[in-house]
């Protein structure tokens, strides 16, 4: 009986030495890939295109992701689809914090990536990646359904690179807290991680005058 050589996925050159590919990983990643549950979460225009993607013509249930869960506790993929406004940002971040590990974030459309065409608006966050780590960006305004599904496939590709050994949610001993402090609405959006910088920025402003209004 000829022994079949195990075909292991190729390791990208930048990850050689950090990633170990084992058959266990392959099974594990295959299972995770085929059961990625997105959260039913809509922000703006892209949300409607996402609804269109999840309908009959494109049907992502072929990838095992037909169930869109309205509760973040039951989902593992957050599709940020649309403009994140400053008023909405605390909610988006709260939802991200509530997602159980392993969690993936997909920024769909120009607005979620960088604020897009509304970037200069006073109530618009310049990209959700300022607050939460984004795994895959899908440019487009809005991206076609195929582009969104290509984004899903890209997430699958990212999953394939992961290994059971070094995933953060399996690490013993050290608790990794991935939650992000929820910003508050003050005179503008207050991101508590920036408190010191804001303080530093405000100090000279009181001595001199306000930077150009």
């Amino acid at each position: 009986m000829p022994t079949r050589k195990r075909q292991l996925p190729e390791i990208p050159p930048e990850l050689v030495g950090t990633v170990h590919v084992t058959p266990l990983d392959r099974i594990y990643n295959w299972a995770r890939k085929r059961s990625l549950w997105p959260m039913f979460f809509g922000l703006a225009c892209c949300a409607f295109e996402m609804v269109g993607t999840f309908a009959a013509r494109f049907d992502p249930s072929r990838f095992g992701m037909e169930i869109m869960r309205a509760s973040p506790r039951q989902a593992d993929l957050l599709i940020v689809n649309g403009t994140v406004t400053k008023k909405m940002a605390p909610q988006v971040i709260r939802l991200y914090n509530q997602l159980p590990e392993p969690k993936y974030v997909l920024a769909m459309g120009a607005c979620a990536i960088s604020g897009g065409p509304f970037k200069e608006g006073y109530n618009v966050v310049s990209g959700i990646d300022k607050f939460i780590p984004v795994d895959v960006y899908i440019p487009g305004c809005p991206p076609r359904p195929e582009a969104l599904m290509h984004g899903f496939l890209t997430i699958h590709a990212r999953m394939e690179r992961e290994s059971v050994r070094d995933l953060r949610w399996y690490r013993k001993g050290e608790e990794v807290d991935t939650s992000v402090p929820v910003p508050e609405l003050g005179p503008d959006l207050v991101d508590w991680r920036l408190a010191e910088q804001i303080e530093a920025l405000q100090q000279p402003a009181t001595d001199n005058q306000q930077p150009a209004e």
Binding site: I113, S114, V134, V136, Y137, P139, R144, E146, A147, T154
Partner: peptide, 8 residues
């Protein structure tokens, strides 16, 4: 259209 990316 298929230009999903990892790095902005």
């Amino acid at each position: 259209i298929e230009i999903a990316a990892f790095d902005r």
